[in-house]
Simulated scan of single mutants.
Amino acid sequence: MAFEPRTAIVTGSNSGIGRSSAVGLAAAGLDVGITWHRNEAGAHETADEVRALGRRAVVARLDTTDLPGCGDVVESLADQLGGLDVFVNNAGAGASIPFLETTWEDWRRVIATDLDGAFICIQRAARRMIDARRGGRIIAVTSVHEHQPRVGFSAYDAAKHGLGGLIKTAALELGEYGITVNAVAPGEIATHMNADANQDSHTIDRPGVPLGRPGDAREVAAVIAFLASTESSFVTGASWVVDGGMLQMGPQAGSHLTSDEWRQG
Results as ranks from 00 to 15, higher is better:
116 D>H: 08
117 G>E: 13
118 A>I: 01
120 I>Y: 09
123 Q>R: 14
127 R>Q: 15
128 R>S: 10
132 A>F: 00
146 E>M: 11
146 E>Y: 04
147 H>E: 12
148 Q>S: 04
148 Q>Y: 08
149 P>D: 12
149 P>T: 10
150 R>I: 05
153 F>P: 05
153 F>C: 10
158 A>H: 14
160 K>C: 07
161 H>D: 11
164 G>H: 11
166 L>M: 13
167 I>E: 05
170 A>F: 15
171 A>V: 04
171 A>R: 02
172 L>F: 06
174 L>F: 08
174 L>N: 03
177 Y>F: 15
177 Y>A: 11
180 T>K: 13
181 V>Y: 03
181 V>W: 07
183 A>L: 13
185 A>C: 14
186 P>A: 06
186 P>L: 09
188 E>A: 08
190 A>R: 08
190 A>K: 06
192 H>Y: 06
193 M>F: 01
193 M>W: 00
195 A>I: 01
197 A>I: 03
199 Q>E: 15
200 D>K: 04
200 D>I: 04
201 S>C: 13
204 I>V: 13
206 R>N: 10
210 P>A: 05
211 L>K: 03
212 G>D: 11
213 R>D: 10
213 R>C: 00
214 P>H: 03
215 G>D: 11
216 D>H: 02
216 D>M: 02
218 R>Q: 12
219 E>I: 02
220 V>W: 03
220 V>G: 14
223 V>A: 12
223 V>N: 04
224 I>L: 10
226 F>N: 08
226 F>V: 06
229 S>Q: 08
